[in-house]
Amino acid sequence: MDTIDDLERQIQELEKANRILTKKLERSEKNRIQLEETHERQQRLLYQAIQGLERSLHELQQAQLQLVQSEKMSALGNLVAGVAHEINNPVGFVAGNLCEAQRSFADLCDHLNLYRTQAPASVLEEHAEAIHLDFLLEDLPEILTSMEVGCDRIRNISTSLRAFARADKDYKVPYDIHEGLDNTLLILKYRLRANESRPAIEVMTDYGQLPLIPCFPGQLKQVLMNIIANAIDALDEYSNGLGYEAIEARGNYIKIQTSVIEEQAIIRITDNGKGISEEIKDNIFDYLFTTKEMGKGTGLGLAIAHQIIVEKHGGLLEVNSQLGEGAEFVIRLPLTDC
């Protein structure tokens, strides 16, 4: 049997345990309240963080759009001199022909006035010879036709530039990729011509049967412009190391081939320029990567092209090349919106 002392000790221990438990309960209640406050604060913090992330995402998307648009305008800026030259040619011959047409028209008016004054046949005959009436009647329609051709060329260039510069809608629209390729080639035409260091670059197109492709046409033309302009750069650089005749013998060319394979529109743009090394190929679609001289390349062109094809269109952009053996860029686009 327990002694009284033992029992007293047990009671004291139980009393102590009771005091400790009561205190722990009190502490536990305090902690619970503190936990609830912390939880509420964390919830608000989480909400703020989510809102902040959403805002940042939106700003990032806007910034990306602006970046794409400014790269496009930068590419266009680089072309301004060439395009101005391209427009000046037809403007020149329209202006030249206009003077000729005005003179011819004035001679014709004089001749008509002689008829109205019922001048004698000999006077009419003499005037007709003086103004070369037969040649004039034959030449004037040709002058007008040639002016019309010049105006058409100016209009085409203007339309292409406007189409290129135009911002896309925020949804995809069906688009004729061949039209995009032709527009781009028109804008770049002056760069394809012969110059003092190399003969003209031959463009070979082999267009297959492509349906209208759902896309952002402005962005897609930006990609085509970038790849074709890079091909011209590659051919220019390659030509720098060779003599004019050597280049003429091998021929500079850009081949553009389109086709449909397995529900994908394929656009192959091939050049026989200097080609791309393995090392450069690994980085070619990276942001701010450029092999061009300072001030010539932004390092954004192919990175944005890749982003446009892969992220915006769910397609693929690949490069196949070996150093010294030209390069092939392959764009694969889904035929249906994804």
Partner: peptide, 10 residues
């Protein structure tokens, strides 16, 4: 950094 949250020991 934290939005409109009351300053606390955090």
């Amino acid at each position: 950094y934290l939005g409109d949250i009351r300053p606390s020991p955090e």
